[in-house]
């Protein structure tokens, strides 16, 4: 799922960020020197151009020949990690989570989860900052009863995402949940900029929904002050 068709074929990135910056500065200096200076102008121009190529593309042909490993693309996947403890027995917590159509009961940004059969589910959510709803189909790809649940979004999703939740006993009566959600922004590089800007919001949204899961599992309700009186809506004395 790490291929992104909209970005097309590009040379592999095998130069680190710091090295790319150094290449850019050094390449620029050599090119300037080649134009302004007198000695070895062609050598300098050639070396400068090579360094600038490395800086701009992130690809170094020499490294390719030497088979240096491809660097991970830092902007490609965005991970959200969360850990929480729910004061309920593990089997109960797992069973409630596994019944995914329960989740919109307390996850406020989740509109619906529909069971499509065969381990596939349709998810519809509204994200603050984004117009309309986003939807995706996801498939449960890993499942160990009471221990682990992993999913992958199917092709055609608004948000390409995958995730894993593990459940472990915590003390006499509690369950520890470890959650990793990975998502990839739509629309290639432009989408990445937007996604990076929205990520803190998205991360806090996911964490709030997980808090709501704990609140609902433990107390059967989600605390709220929406709808209470205040002097911000005075009725006039």
């Amino acid at each position: 799922m790490n291929e992104n068709s909209s970005t097309g074929n590009k040379p592999d990135v095998n130069v680190g960020q710091t090295e790319r910056i150094i290449s850019a500065v050094a390449g620029g200096f050599l090119l300037y020197n080649a134009i302004a200076g007198r000695n070895a102008r062609f050598v300098k121009a050639g070396a400068g151009a090579f360094l600038l190529y490395r800086a701009v593309t992130g690809n170094c042909p020499v490294y390719s020949v030497l088979r240096k490993k491809r660097m991970p693309d830092p902007a490609r996947n965005i991970n959200v990690r969360a850990t929480l403890t729910v004061n309920r027995p593990r089997q109960e917590v797992y069973a409630f989570w596994r019944n995914l159509t329960n989740l919109p009961l307390f996850m406020k940004h989740l509109q619906t989860v529909t069971d499509l059969g065969g381990g596939k589910y349709n998810w519809v959510a509204n994200m603050p900052g984004l117009p309309g709803n986003v939807s995706w189909d996801a498939e449960i790809v890993k499942e160990e009863e009471g221990v682990l649940l992993g999913w992958n979004a199917l092709p055609g999703s608004d948000i390409d995402n995958a995730g894993k939740v593990t459940f472990a006993d915590a003390g006499e009566n509690g369950t520890e949940l470890h959650i990793v959600i990975t998502y990839r922004a739509p629309l290639g590089p432009a989408g990445r900029v937007v996604a990076r800007a929205l990520n803190p919001l998205f991360e806090s949204l996911i964490k709030e929904e997980l808090r709501n899961f704990k609140r609902y599992m433990e107390t059967g309700e989600v605390p709220t002050i929406q709808g209470q009186p205040s002097g911000r809506e005075p009725l006039g004395v």
Partner: peptide, 9 residues
């Protein structure tokens, strides 16, 4: 003068 509180949960 504000509205009366209601049951929310």
């Amino acid at each position: 003068r504000v509205k009366d509180p209601v049951i929310l949960n």
